[in-house]
Design a protein around this nucleic acid. Structure first.
Length: 376
RNA sequence: GGUGGGGUGACCGAGUGGCUAAUGGUAGCAGACUGUAAAUCUGCCGGGCUUUGCCCUACGUAGGUUCGAAUCCUACCCCCACCA
């Protein structure tokens, strides 16, 4: 039910398969984010055709509406959304960070004020686990305390230690759930900000509280310089056991995926594919392009001539630009479809290169080309 | 023909003596976005330059009053409404 198999490695990079109750995920993999149980604007069949094998949903958001009881009443997240493949629910820990100013943290948990209508919601490690169990995703995440990227050692230590204490409460609660460990696996999250000693300690202490069937690295790409993130990944690489799938939370843009894969990451998720898509920023092998730019007014070529997505197979930049200028929702969807496919395909390509042994050189060339931004 | 209202930057539309190259909005242009408070947000948006500033041009047209006018006066042109 929860099994991770490593097929090949290329330096730190790994190619594997993650077996979950709703199916298999070939890693490295990019997981599109569907906060409210929908990857914004996309039909599940579009996600399937884009090659998505697993998607995310969010505990906090689904708890606020429609509520886990509602979702349970209609048969759980999978039935509700009709997404048949694996799902992962984020715990709401990220909202501790992103809803800063609308929340109060205590040792017991976090009180959130719903930005939409002001309602108060209290999330504890136990509640986060219960909600996620009710939702029924394949992977549940521990409720963590994310601190900003440039946090002081003290703030990062507080967040990291609280995350560890909350992890024990999450695990304790999860263990009591009926058949909980057969239907759903709970993954812990490594914190520690940008501080080496804290990161190492977080990883080691987390592992002693195991066994786990996967482990996440959180609190990165939240404002710290990119080299810092790379360094933390390199630091954690030898600390984490090779047998555990590693999930780098919230990352990322195309180059970040490759940089992460090169440093041993197996799973990624990021809202950028869809958010940037809705905002008209399209990913290509030679950097991002703003589809609304006037220079695309009569451009007949697709976003990325090398892309195999449904959007690129059919639509010109000129038409996509027009849809954005006319504010037709089709434009938002089409660029989102492209970006999602782009990220998923990048992971697929990396996997193939790890398997055939050519990953390192290919990855270096890919990054060079991306940053060269030659021919938009 | 008469009376009244009105002509402002690509468009709509404020402003009724100096703080006005001129509020807002739209359109346009450029950019940002990393476990989604985001189909959002930011910047530019008369022209030029030696660009934390300076110089041109500009509020229907022409002239005038004033130290100073989009704002006041005169004439003319045009638009709208009503009356003949």
């Amino acid at each position: 039910m929860f099994e991770f198999t490593l097929h090949a490695t290329a330096d730190a990079a790994r190619a594997g398969s993650l077996l979950l109750p709703h199916g298999t995920v070939d890693t490295p993999a990019f997981m599109p984010v569907g906060t409210y149980g929908a990857v914004r604007g996309l039909h599940p069949s579009e996600l399937e055709r884009a090659g998505a094998q697993i998607i995310l949903a969010n505990t906090y958001h689904l708890h606020v509406r429609p509520g886990e009881a509602t979702i349970q009443a209609v048969g759980g997240l999978h039935h509700f959304t009709t997404w048949r493949q694996p799902m992962l629910t984020d715990s709401g820990g990220f909202q501790v960070f992103s809803l800063k100013g609308l929340r109060t943290i205590t040792e017991d948990g976090v009180e959130f004020q719903n930005p939409v209508n002001g309602d108060i919601h209290f999330l504890t490690p136990e509640r986060a686990v219960e909600i996620q169990y009710a939702l029924g995703a394949d992977i549940a995440m521990a409720f963590d305390h994310v601190v900003p990227g440039q946090s002081s050692h003290e703030a990062a230590r507080d967040g990291m230690e609280r995350t560890l204490r909350w992890l024990e409460r999450c695990a304790t609660r999860h263990a009591t759930l009926d058949r909980g460990r057969e239907r759903q696996t709970l993954w812990p999250i490594v914190q520690g900000g940008g501080h080496d000693d804290l990161r190492t300690r977080s990883a080691r202490d987390t592992l002693t509280r195991g066994p786990w069937s996967g482990i996440a690295i959180g609190g990165l790409s939240v404002g710290e310089p990119k080299p810092r993130m790379h360094h933390v990944l390199e630091l954690l690489h030898p600390v984490l056991p090779p047998t555990l799938p590693r999930y780098l939370m919230g990352v990322g843009f195309p180059p970040d995926l490759l940089e992460g894969i090169a440093r041993g990451i197996d799973l990624f998720d990021c809202v950028a594919a869809t958010r940037n898509g809705r905002h008209g920023s399209a990913w290509t092998v030679s950097g991002t392009l703003n589809i609304r730019a006037a220079r695309h007014r009569t451009a007949r070529e697709p976003i990325d001539p090398e892309c195999d997505c449904e959007t690129c197979a059919r639509f010109s930049r000129a038409y996509l630009r027009h849809l954005f200028m006319a504010e037709d929702m089709l434009g938002l969807r089409l660029v989102s479809i492209h970006n999602v496919r782009f990220a998923i395909r990048l992971a697929e390509q990396a996997r193939a290169r790890i398997l055939d042994g050519s990953f390192t050189g290919w990855s270096r060339n890919w990054l060079e080309r991306y940053y060269a931004r030659g021919n938009e």
